[in-house]
Amino acid sequence: MTGQPTLNRRAVVQTLLRERGDLVVVAGLGATAWDVASVGDHPLDFPLWGAMGGAAMLGLGLALAQPARTVLVLTGDGEMLMGLGSLATIAAQRPRNLRVVVMDNQVYGETGRQPTHTALGTDLAAVALACGFPTARTLWEADGLEPLRTAVHQSDDLLFAVVKVAVTDEPMTLPPRDGAYLKHRLRGALLGPTALE
């Protein structure tokens, strides 16, 4: 299926993070980080304000270090495209507690809405499958969201998903941007008193 995406990104993130429990969320820079913050800032969130192309790898590091936790990387198509090789690296490790979900609006939203490669033919779910992800799906319709939410929270294996979302103007909901604070907050939430060792 192709065409213009129609899903609303804020509604998508609201659904995926509903009753999130102890889900750890890495948010790629830009609109995806604002989307995650729009649901409410959370100590188990690690929103990136830079390090473009690194969100999925940061999620891999977390997933390997915390095998009992589920780690969700939520990022944009531009951010994922900059780290395409990381899909091969992740699939080679196959952490069963990692999920990578790309909010794909097919544009670089922060820089003037220039089309990304997903508007020009690149199929990120096919890339992930070709890299060795056991499952990958692309959602164009709202009826796939609840099954995706269930899979994110309950799957016992690595998964990849692309959610095609519309280009929209959403309110700016900014997460904290002090990197040292974000680091200490997440370590504190995951490691307790040993976080400052």
């Binding site: 390090a51 690194g54 790898m57 940061l58 590091g61 977390l62 997933a63 040993t194």
Partner: peptide, 13 residues
Amino acid sequence: EGIALAAGAYLGG
């Protein structure tokens, strides 16, 4: 990739 991996690992202890 190894830099982001190391950062994530450290976040997880």
